[in-house]
């Protein structure tokens, strides 16, 4: 499991992030999220706000972004919630990065379906390129994390890089994707299987065949 401890509270961290504030657009977005909840329930917006903060940090550092303690404190103050409650949320969800990450946060799914379909090879392919779990690579481009199921079991194995999924991977296909990213190009997202569109059956339809043309009620046949 990834190390979720927050980055240490050092004077340098305070100096760098102590003056964190929403940008003009993000303030608008933050207020939009808060306005979704009834009066007195502003604290319900804690998750979108943390995400927003992480993205803003990401823009400033040209990475996926992460949550330094002063930023967490800023969010807590913004919705008037004790900071420990916000820290609880931030440390609970894996989509919030508690430590700095590289420009591309490579999150490899290692849960059973992906594992059966070869996620171990994907991980070794990543490691071969110099990535290490929980570390930012020397060129500042990569951070590798193993995550739990991302819900792409039909197109396993998969990795999620920042906001995009890359599915149906083999070590070679992964290399192509990563090479493109390293060059600053945007590779095709989604399945990497030639000819496959999204998560439709890879070969011929094997079950629910009666549903192809029209809706079919199977209940009587069970």
């Amino acid at each position: 499991m990834a190390d979720r401890t927050p980055a240490p509270d050092t004077p340098e961290l305070r100096a760098r992030w102590g003056s964190f504030e929403w940008t003009k657009e993000n303030r608008k977005r933050a207020d939009y999220h808060i306005a979704k909840y009834p009066d007195g329930r502003q604290k319900s917006a804690v998750m979108p706000l943390l995400d927003l903060a992480q993205r803003q940090v990401g823009e400033e550092t040209e990475t996926q972004g992460w949550l330094p303690l002063p930023v967490i404190e800023y969010v807590a103050k913004y919705i008037d919630v004790p900071v420990i409650r916000v820290l609880e949320v931030a440390t609970f969800y894996f989509m919030y990065n508690m430590k700095p990450v590289g420009k591309y946060h490579v999150q490899v799914c290692g849960t059973t379906p992906c594992m059966l379909r070869g996620s171990d090879d994907i991980i070794s392919a990543c490691k071969k390129r110099g990535m290490e779990f929980g570390k930012v690579s020397e060129d500042g481009l990569w951070t590798l994390t193993e995550v739990e199921c991302m819900g792409n079991c039909a197109t396993a194995p998969m990795v999620q890089i920042n906001d995009d999924n890359y599915e149906d991977l083999t070590p070679e296909r992964l290399d192509t994707v990563l090479d493109a990213l390293a060059k600053g190009e945007q590779p095709k997202t989604g399945t990497q299987e030639p000819g496959r569109h999204t998560s439709e059956p890879a070969n011929a339809l094997s079950n629910l065949t009666d549903m192809v043309d029209a809706n079919h009620d199977y209940r009587g046949e069970w």
């Binding site: 979720r4 303690l69 004790p82 420990i84 409650r85 820290l87 609880e88 440390t91 609970f92």
Partner: peptide
């Protein structure tokens, strides 16, 4: 006084005060 919280999750959950 909200000062004690449960950080992390599952088996890794830890009870602590902020910092």
């Amino acid at each position: 006084v909200d000062e004690i919280g449960a950080l992390y999750r599952g088996e890794d959950m830890q009870i602590t005060t902020y910092l």
